[in-house]
């Protein structure tokens, strides 16, 4: 019983200094892609300003990534850390959903 409590406490303390690894896959300069880039930058700046890394990848430039990363719908945001991995598709205009998807709590 005590053990589980300890673990929970650990997690809580860890959550303070979470580091977010995000990758955004886009397709060139399409409307959805541009919107997604704007939206994710805004969210990152607002909520996780200093503890995140954001990589923006144009799938047109690296086509082999599409199969490797199981990409179907674009734009796609992959949060690879902290675990579990989450995938968010769309132009990221629904801020609430994006925050929930990445795992940022308020």
């Amino acid at each position: 019983m005590n053990d589980t409590l300890d673990i929970n406490q650990c997690r809580d303390s860890e959550e303070e200094d979470k580091y977010y690894v995000l990758r955004l896959f886009i397709t060139g300069a399409s409307v959805n892609s541009l919107r997604a880039v704007t939206n994710i930058k805004k969210i990152c700046d607002t909520y996780i300003k200093d503890n995140h890394s954001l990589e923006i990848i144009d799938v047109y430039q690296e086509k082999e990534l599409a199969e490797k990363e199981q990409i179907i719908a674009l734009p796609l945001l992959i949060k690879s850390f902290p675990l579990p991995e989450r995938r968010l598709i769309g132009d990221l205009s629904d801020t609430k959903k994006v925050l929930k998807g990445i795992g940022i709590t308020f």
Partner: peptide, 13 residues
Amino acid sequence: EIEETGEYDLDGL
């Protein structure tokens, strides 16, 4: 595993 957060297309496919 997927969350839909707005407009998207199947360009990936």
